[in-house]
């Protein structure tokens, strides 16, 4: 199995007020699964995703991703984990607007000392072709449309061939037509790379239905879908 959460608790403290967002979340997700994560706004979906992705280590409980126990990792190891093992796609794309598309896609390689510099461009073109944007490689990122930006973000996310792809409402900022196109990209990806686990936060039931499995979260705990 790829991901295992055991009794995960997360509390945000803002001044005196404590917000128990996650109250004992436990679940496992197998390798190669394609999971939709659903729940009301503020139910802690993004929080959970950040914990799985190693962006947030300030939680209680145990999280194991691809055999790595996140609680025990230091900044260096965590950074490496985010670089090689998991990847994020955000609702707001978060590209570096001043850089060309190809440099945005290659960004993970900046922080990857083992990477041979020679095949970077080939790899960038390859992943851009995968998201159908080979022709945009030279454009500057902020000249792209929203759908294109999100596809570049996906290309960036799969550049280092991660084992887990974490998507936080990837279509949330797009209209339904372009959102559909982006979803198609995900489906192709899932079909092609069978062992890559895909977790997608979404509010749209229609999108969730396209996934293999739906996990619903409510009041800080998993409601259903842990089958």
């Amino acid at each position: 199995m790829t991901i295992r959460l055991t009794d995960v608790h997360k509390t945000y403290r803002v001044g005196e007020v404590a917000n128990h967002v996650l109250q004992g979340v436990s679940c496992t997700i197998e390798a190669g699964d394609y999971v939709a994560l659903m729940g009301a706004s503020g139910s802690g979906k993004s929080t959970l995703l950040n914990i799985i992705g190693g962006l947030d280590t300030d939680f209680d409980g145990e999280v194991t991703v691809c055999g790595q126990v996140l609680k025990r990792m230091g900044d260096r190891e965590l950074s490496r984990f985010r670089n090689r093992t998991v990847s994020f796609v955000f609702q707001q794309f978060h590209l570096l607007p001043h850089l060309p598309v190809v440099d945005n896609v290659m960004m993970p390689s900046w922080f990857d000392p083992d990477r041979s510099q020679l095949d970077l461009h080939d790899r960038a073109r390859q992943v851009l072709a995968q998201v159908g944007l080979a022709h945009k490689a030279g454009s500057t990122a902020n000249h792209l449309s929203g759908g294109e930006k999100q596809r570049v973000a996906i290309a960036r996310a799969i550049f280092n061939a991660p084992q887990v792809l974490l998507c936080d409402e990837p279509t949330g900022a797009l209209d339904s037509k372009t959102g559909d196109m982006v979803m198609q990209v995900f489906e192709e990806l899932h079909a092609k790379t069978r062992d890559m686990t895909l977790i997608m936060v979404t509010h749209a039931e229609s999108i969730a239905q396209r996934c293999r499995r739906i996990i619903r979260i409510s009041d800080g705990a998993i409601l259903s879908g842990d089958a």
């Binding site: 992705g53 962006l55 900044d75 260096r76 950074s79 490496r80 985010r82 670089n83 090689r84 990847s87 994020f88 707001q92 978060h94 590209l95 570096l96 960004m107 993970p108 900046w110 922080f111 990857d112 960036r156």
Partner: peptide
């Protein structure tokens, strides 16, 4: 700060 955040998300260490 978004830029710094995304760099951290794709593998930049604090030292980087």
């Amino acid at each position: 700060r978004y830029e710094i955040g995304i760099m951290r998300a794709v593998g930049a260490t604090r030292a980087d």
